[in-house]
């Protein structure tokens, strides 16, 4: 079972600027106020692990599952009977770069987690994507 929501914003920020925003841990709390801190165990690459602490919940381990420089950065957090993926993608469009962030839940309890957890995350996506673009433009 899969539950997913995405938010796309077209921006004039460059792929380099946006990539820097994604891959610098210090920017995460600024771009998503729900994040208290994040740390990476190694430079961002597929297979690299890290820890993220959200406000009001214990720190969780995650793993980068698909990293392509200036194109894509997905990470996965394991939940009981489900996997939460946070996706980040860039795509060229005639109006600028389409910056897409997504929340995807897979597994037997994906629907339940979608209702309990995913919708709240999805509702925050527009503001997070906007902050990432704003931050990228300021770099």
């Amino acid at each position: 079972m899969t539950w997913s929501r995405h938010c796309t914003l077209v921006t004039t920020a460059t792929a380099e600027q946006l990539w820097a925003r994604w891959t610098t841990p210090e920017y995460w709390p600024a771009d998503d106020p729900a994040v208290q801190w994040v740390s990476f165990d190694a430079p961002v690459a597929t297979g690299t692990t890290g820890r993220v602490k959200n406000n009001g919940s214990p720190a969780q381990r995650f793993r980068f599952t698909d990293v392509r420089v200036h194109q894509r950065m997905d990470l996965e957090i394991r939940l009981p009977l489900a996997r939460l993926s946070i996706t980040h993608a860039l795509r060229e469009t005639p109006a600028g770069l389409a910056l897409t962030h997504g929340v995807e839940l897979n597994g037997p309890l994906a629907g339940c987690y979608g209702l309990l957890l995913g919708r709240g995350l999805a509702d925050e996506l527009p503001a997070v994507v906007r902050r990432v673009a704003d931050g990228a433009l300021s770099l």
Binding site: T8, L9, V10, T11, T12, A13, A95, G96, A98, A133, L137
Partner: peptide
Amino acid sequence: LPPAERRARALS
């Protein structure tokens, strides 16, 4: 926002 960015986001 700068004009080009306003355009991009409105079109988005």
